[in-house]
């Protein structure tokens, strides 16, 4: 399954178009991010669909921000799924990556992963590996929207109450590029409590995801308390789409909340 990606990366490295390729490698039975710089040393490269599709995903574009900051003049390749590509596009609009210095190499997600993600577009615009899976709508959002307002509140409070405030959702989020985080701003959120001040903690994060979240779902995967954060942020993206006809990573340009004056409307 990795042959086409390897071939493409080899070409890019040999031609000197990229300084390195940020992908995944398998070492000692473990899969992790790796910057491939030698065109003849791509043996260990994997795509992260080992036992189950998408079981080893990493916020590669978030790592790329750090690499790019250290090597601002170099161009890097990066492995992208549909969501990662949306992430790249959004990071370009936030001035965190330079589109001229990034060459994405795409893979399409298998249907099983697209289903699990309820992904609106489980493939990048161009991909060298995999087949285009069918898009899925967000049944999880519809389910919660169908509840009575009181039940919605109770259900979210129950979910949020399990939070152990590990900041995993934020730390893995490719869209969380800030140095200083509002979730740790003592003026906004009471510190030193477990669970963290609910629902304020999670709603503050949800607000920050408006116009940013590209629905990669890593937050949900990493959460040790299984809080359905992805569902919350899917709704956030839906609202921005309904109100302003904008969906990060899918639409062109900047978030409507970052545009002066009235934004394009439905």
């Amino acid at each position: 399954m990795t042959q086409n990606v390897k071939k493409k990366v080899k070409e890019l490295l040999e031609s000197g178009k990229i300084k390195g390729f940020l992908g995944l490698c398998q070492k000692n039975g473990h899969i992790g991010p790796h910057l491939f710089c030698d065109p003849d040393d791509l043996e260990s490269m994997v795509l992260g669909d080992e036992e189950r599709p998408g079981d080893s995903r990493y916020p590669l574009n978030k790592l790329l921000i750090h690499i790019a900051r250290s090597y601002p003049d170099e161009t890097f390749g990066v492995l992208v799924r549909g969501c990662d590509e949306r992430g790249l596009k959004t990071l370009y609009t936030w001035n965190q990556l330079n589109p001229d210095k990034v060459i994405p190499v795409g893979v399409a997600c298998p249907q099983e992963l697209a289903d699990a993600c309820e992904c609106l577009r489980p493939y990048p615009e161009e991909f060298v590996e995999g087949e285009r899976a069918e898009e899925r709508s967000s049944a999880s959002v519809t389910k919660i929207s169908g509840l009575d307002v009181k039940d919605r509140f109770t259900s979210w409070m129950k979910e949020f109450a399990r939070c152990i405030k590990c900041y995993g959702c934020r730390d893995i989020c490719p869209m969380c590029f800030c140095n200083e985080c509002s979730l740790e701003a003592e003026e906004l959120i009471h510190t030193g409590e477990l669970p963290p001040e609910i629902p304020i903690f999670h709603l503050v994060r949800a607000v920050h995801m408006a116009g940013r979240c590209i629905d990669c779902g890593l937050c949900n995967e990493v959460c040790p308390a299984d809080i359905p954060l992805r569902t919350l942020y899917k709704k956030v993206a839906d609202i921005i789409d309904e109100e302003f006809n904008y969906r990060p990573g899918y639409s062109e340009g900047k978030s409507p909340l970052n545009i002066l004056g009235s934004a394009a409307e439905e």
């Binding site: 919660i144 929207s145 509840l147 307002v149 009181k150 039940d151 919605r152 509140f153 109770t154 259900s155 979210w156 409070m157 629902p199 709603l203 949800a206 607000v207 408006a210 919350l232 709704k235 956030v236 609202i239 921005i240 309904e242 109100e243 909340l257």
Partner: peptide, 12 residues
């Protein structure tokens, strides 16, 4: 506009 809908979804 955004917040009203987020509140509603959160049960407020």
């Amino acid at each position: 506009r955004f917040l009203k809908k987020l509140l509603a979804f959160s049960g407020i």
